[in-house]
Write a protein that binds this DNA or RNA. Structure first.
Lengths: 272, 272
DNA sequence: ATAGATTTTGAAATAATATGCAATATTTTT
DNA sequence: AAAAATATTGCATATTATTTCAAAATCTAT
């Protein structure tokens, strides 16, 4: 067997079992313990695997949380900043519709301290608030979409159709002059229902989402009141959105103050 | 077993039970007390765990989980046994309504390996199955009832009213000749809807629930097909239920084989 | 193709680490 | 304060890593 093939099989195996002893791995790839050890030191340096006494483990296991959390490392600082800025746009005692997705989740984390009524189809968001006394959480029904922990299907759409909320905090796969798009067509119906039901619509979009189009079209820019993004968002794109009448909040984070931190909406009270 | 795996299992276990004795932990990871002690000092330095006399406890009661888990130490062995026995009564490919509550939660844990369709208003149960590929989970809508992580209110009732399922796995606060009762009046409407929607109704009730009446009346015994309980259930109470035509499964656990393990339904295929 | 160079592999010897046991010290309970 | 339960420490043993080296495999240049 080739070295590369061995490496692949070792990683796959660990992906499945999370922990494995040297002996186990050696048998699995039919190589000697020495070879596997060498493979492991190599794989460890790639970062996906960690050597342990007597074997190895996967570094980032299929967690009991949602795949969700593993994606969460992407643009973490940015998402945190966006989350904080977005939370500032929500006032106490408002009713808030919260979309699924990691960026929105970060916004949710910053809302914990406020007394609010939350409506969501995201299990991570629901779990987050489940034990917070001063927040009432309404969970829409639906079928769990495994990787994301979102509730989808007619139950969810109907639930939002029946609701009315002050704000909707949304996420998406991309934004451009043509509008907002998302990668999961299943979610589109639900997100539309969310937008319809909210008086004010806020989109949380990190800088990687700008001028990008995902597979499924969600809505025109007109439906959006506010976009919250981070300091790395391309300035000209931000200006395009502002020219279209959207409020754009650029959240500063860790030394990246945002090209127009002072000029931006950060000083404005809230959308109006 | 590798050290790392042991550490993870110790943390997981503590996550579930909140506190565990040294002996308990040693048995659980099949290592000596010394080793577990060393593991605990190490885990303590990571901050997630605190050593105590005679064992260890979780430092951060996983606030994103539910209060739920703290109650879980009560009759843990019994509930585990009941859960296992109850899971045996559910066949592959059936649709299963799952109630909230710790005992039902344990039953859910034993269902993970089967291909099923689950309908539930319990967030812990939903989370449990969220990442399991071969199980489709339908979550009813509703408002989160904080301490328990249950979805309550009209959304939940309506969702169940619209459903039909093969089995309902239920929990309750007490059972007596007069019927089943529960401690949370809010849940009664929902539980009735669950029972109505299921072809077969199974109640999971540990021995402390026998001949007890909680504040809210749920239903007569006639609505129940099967009761799953543990070996410490009072024999005469079990007989009363059997005389009323209910199937009673007495689950054996750790040295308590149940007064009538052989005579009980454990040999029967399933309710009919 | 073949000889030589390079890399990879497996196996030994040696070093490091983890484990379990027992003796001693500490804390908790009565 | 004494007794019971639990912790800590030190040590022998067992397990696992690392290093080293020779054989096998792969590659390269003629």
């Amino acid at each position: 067997m080739q070295a590369e093939e061995r490496h692949k099989r070792i990683e796959e195996y660990l992906q499945r079992v999370e922990f494995a002893s040297l002996e186990e791995l050696a048998r699995h790839v039919s190589a000697s313990a020495s070879t596997v050890r060498r493979d492991l030191t190599l794989l460890e340096s790639c970062g996906n695997i960690r050597r342990t006494h007597g074997g190895a483990r996967i570094i980032n296991p299929r967690s009991d949380e949602f795949t969700f959390s593993s994606r969460d490392t992407q643009q973490l600082a940015e998402k945190e900043a966006i989350g904080r800025a977005c939370a500032d746009l929500v006032r106490v005692r408002e009713s808030v519709i919260m979309d699924a997705g990691t960026t929105v989740y970060h916004a949710a984390r910053h809302l914990e301290s406020k007394a609010l009524q939350i409506v969501t189809n995201s299990l991570p968001v629901a779990n987050l608030f489940a034990s917070v006394q001063h927040i009432e959480v309404v969970v829409t029904g639906g079928v769990i979409y495994p990787r994301l922990g979102v509730l989808v299907g007619p139950l969810a759409v109907e639930a939002f159709a029946k609701m009315h909320a002050d704000v909707a905090v949304m996420g998406a796969g991309g934004i451009s002059v043509d509008g907002v798009t998302n990668s999961h067509p299943l979610l589109i119906d639900i997100q539309r229902a969310m937008i319809e039901s909210a008086r004010r619509v806020i989109f949380c979009l990190d800088h990687t989402k700008f001028d990008r189009r995902s597979v499924a079209f969600l809505c025109e820019l007109d439906f959006i009141d506010t976009v919250v993004t981070d300091g790395l968002a391309p300035a000209e794109q931000v200006e395009v959105l502002r020219a279209r009448g959207l409020e754009v909040v650029v959240a500063a984070f860790e030394g990246v103050p945002g090209p127009n931190a002072a000029a931006s909406g950060s000083a404005l009270p809230v959308a109006g």
